[in-house]
Amino acid sequence: MHGEYKVPGGKLVVVDLDVEDGVLRHVRVAGDFFLEPDEALDAVNGALEEAPADTDAAGLAARVDAVLPEHTVMYGLTSAGIGVAVRRALAEATDWTDYDWQLIHEEPQSPALHMALDEVLTTEVAAGRRPPTLRVWEWADPSVIIGSFQSLRNEVDREAAERYGIEVVRRISGGGAMFVEPGNTITYSLSVPEALVQGLSFQDSYAYLDEWVLGALGEMGIKAWYQPLNDIATEQGKIAGAAQKRIVGPGGGPGAVLHHVTMSYDIDADRMLEVLRIGREKLSGKGTRSARKRVDPLRRQTGLPREAVIERMIESFRGRYGLTDGKVTDDELARAEELARTKFGSPEWTARVP
Results as ranks from 00 to 15, higher is better:
residue 195 A to W: 01
residue 299 R to G: 02
residue 266 D to W: 03
residue 64 V to R: 05
residue 302 T to H: 09
residue 133 T to N: 05
residue 45 N to M: 07
residue 306 R to K: 12
residue 244 Q to C: 09
residue 247 I to C: 06
residue 134 L to K: 03
residue 53 A to K: 07
residue 31 G to T: 11
residue 94 T to H: 07
residue 313 M to F: 12
residue 114 H to L: 15
residue 134 L to R: 02
residue 278 I to V: 14
residue 88 R to Q: 06
residue 183 G to D: 05
residue 14 V to A: 14
residue 143 S to T: 15
residue 37 P to F: 05
residue 220 M to C: 09
residue 280 R to C: 00
residue 121 L to V: 15
residue 288 T to W: 10
residue 15 V to D: 03
residue 64 V to F: 09
residue 95 D to L: 11
residue 43 A to G: 08
residue 145 I to F: 04
residue 29 V to C: 10
residue 56 D to Y: 07
residue 262 T to G: 12
residue 190 L to Y: 02
residue 48 L to W: 04
residue 326 G to L: 03
residue 83 G to H: 01
residue 157 D to S: 13
residue 43 A to S: 15
residue 49 E to M: 11
residue 243 A to Y: 02
residue 323 L to K: 00
residue 306 R to Q: 09
residue 157 D to C: 10
residue 5 Y to F: 15
residue 176 G to H: 11
residue 175 G to W: 03
residue 249 G to L: 05
residue 227 Q to S: 13
residue 30 A to H: 12
residue 59 G to Q: 12
residue 32 D to G: 11
residue 12 L to G: 01
residue 279 G to Q: 10
residue 152 L to T: 11
residue 135 R to K: 15
residue 237 G to D: 09
residue 14 V to M: 13
residue 212 W to E: 11
residue 32 D to Y: 12
residue 205 S to I: 01
residue 33 F to V: 06
residue 27 V to I: 09
residue 329 T to Q: 05
residue 101 W to A: 03
residue 308 A to E: 15
residue 269 A to W: 08
residue 334 A to D: 11
residue 156 V to L: 05
residue 238 K to F: 08
residue 74 M to G: 01
residue 107 E to F: 11
residue 60 L to D: 00
residue 120 V to P: 04
residue 266 D to A: 10
residue 137 W to T: 10
residue 68 L to P: 09
residue 332 E to G: 06
residue 86 V to W: 01
residue 111 P to M: 04
residue 233 A to L: 04
residue 318 R to N: 04
residue 84 V to E: 05
residue 84 V to N: 00
residue 352 R to W: 10
residue 19 V to F: 07
residue 254 P to C: 03
residue 190 L to F: 13
residue 317 F to A: 00
residue 266 D to C: 05
residue 265 Y to T: 03
residue 105 H to L: 14
residue 283 L to T: 08
residue 286 K to I: 08
residue 256 A to T: 04
residue 115 M to F: 01
residue 278 I to C: 01
residue 46 G to E: 11
residue 314 I to F: 07
residue 186 I to Y: 03
residue 59 G to F: 12
residue 81 G to Y: 04
residue 125 V to Y: 01
residue 162 E to L: 11
residue 78 T to A: 04
residue 41 L to S: 06
residue 313 M to H: 00
residue 251 G to D: 10
residue 199 G to T: 01
residue 322 G to D: 05
residue 282 K to F: 07
residue 284 S to E: 12
residue 100 D to C: 04
residue 57 A to P: 06
residue 311 E to I: 03
residue 174 G to I: 12
residue 227 Q to C: 09
residue 61 A to E: 05
residue 99 Y to N: 02
residue 159 E to G: 10
residue 113 L to H: 08
residue 130 R to F: 07
residue 245 K to F: 13
residue 317 F to S: 02
residue 314 I to M: 07
residue 203 Q to E: 15
residue 121 L to K: 06
residue 138 E to Q: 15
residue 260 H to Y: 14
residue 228 P to T: 10
residue 237 G to E: 08
residue 168 V to F: 02
residue 332 E to T: 11
